[in-house]
């Protein structure tokens, strides 16, 4: 059995008057990769963006229900949303390097949280070490170590995505949300990101939105299968892929629909 890190309970979401999530209840096990799968428009990304409360930053969105992160409801009263987002990191489908240097991109999260004040006293060596550590963790260090202070926009798309991974990891989140993180990448870069994710699950809970069934098969330990904003089935990957209960799940994983 697994230990749930996140419990999603009766989660509903609306864009204007359109309901995108119709009461989702599911668990995300700790230190595993949970893949959210389903056809286009089924609410995969919406669900993911509810897990770090990013959905509410868009105009005219509304969320109800609970998301328990280690027993605390992130939609509860008095919750500091910046703290939620510090604990739950995110990797977007397209890399968006911040308009600053490679170094500053990785240091950004630390700096906005004022962490450098305790760690970085004096000559900044600690921040240097952190930046190096997470660039290594993202598999980018060797390629950029001689040009850390060049603008991040000069990197290739694949490198930018690894930079975004390093940037997210540098805040040391417990959970990493990945929204189709390889969709803009060439196959080699995509494979690199997949390997990083597999290595990361040792200490991090990963939630992965993917429209690629094969990617879900390669990476996922646990599956959440959505259909038109509803949860159809959730459980260990083994079970979903080989002995699904629901007709739609069987048809989807067999590649007959969606």
């Amino acid at each position: 059995m697994y230990k749930p890190h996140i419990r999603i309970e009766d989660l509903k979401a609306w864009y204007g008057n359109g309901q995108a999530l119709k009461g989702i209840t599911a668990d995300v096990p700790e230190h595993q990769i949970t893949a959210i799968i389903g056809p286009s428009g089924c609410g995969k990304t919406t669900l993911l963006r509810c897990l770090n409360r990013l959905l509410e930053e868009a105009q005219a969105t509304r969320v109800s229900g609970h998301v328990w992160l280690d027993g605390t409801d992130i939609y509860g009263p008095g919750v500091d949303v910046t703290e939620v987002r510090t604990r739950v990191g995110m990797l977007a489908p397209k890399p968006f390097p911040l308009p600053m240097s490679i170094y500053d991109n990785v240091a950004y999260g630390r700096r906005i949280h004022g962490l450098q004040r305790t760690l970085d006293k004096g000559n900044g060596r600690n921040l240097d070490r952190i930046v190096q550590h997470y660039l290594q963790a993202a598999g980018l260090w060797e390629e950029v170590k001689d040009r850390l202070h060049d603008p991040a926009s000069g990197l290739s798309t694949g490198q930018q995505q690894r930079l975004c991974l390093a940037r997210a990891l540098a805040v040391e989140p417990e959970v990493l949300l990945c929204d189709e993180p390889t969709s803009a990448l060439d196959p080699i870069s995509a494979q690199g990101i997949e390997e990083q994710l597999l290595a990361l699950k040792e200490g991090t809970t990963i939630v992965l939105v993917t429209h690629l069934l094969r990617q879900a098969r390669r990476l996922a330990d646990h599956i959440i299968f959505l259909w038109m904003g509803e949860l159809v089935e959730t459980g260990p990957a083994e079970q979903i892929f080989h002995s699904a209960q629901d007709e739609r799940t069987r048809a989807y994983v067999a590649g007959n629909i969606g």
């Binding site: 990013l54 987002r85 995110m90 977007a92 911040l98 308009p99 950004y108 999260g109 906005i112 940037r167």
Partner: peptide, 23 residues
């Protein structure tokens, strides 16, 4: 996407505006 990147790291709106959007 740039705003989301900053907000998702736990930055406040104002930090995002000052350090990312305005830059």
């Amino acid at each position: 996407g740039l705003r989301d990147a900053s907000l998702a790291l736990g930055a406040t709106r104002w930090q995002t505006v000052r350090n990312v959007v305005m830059r």
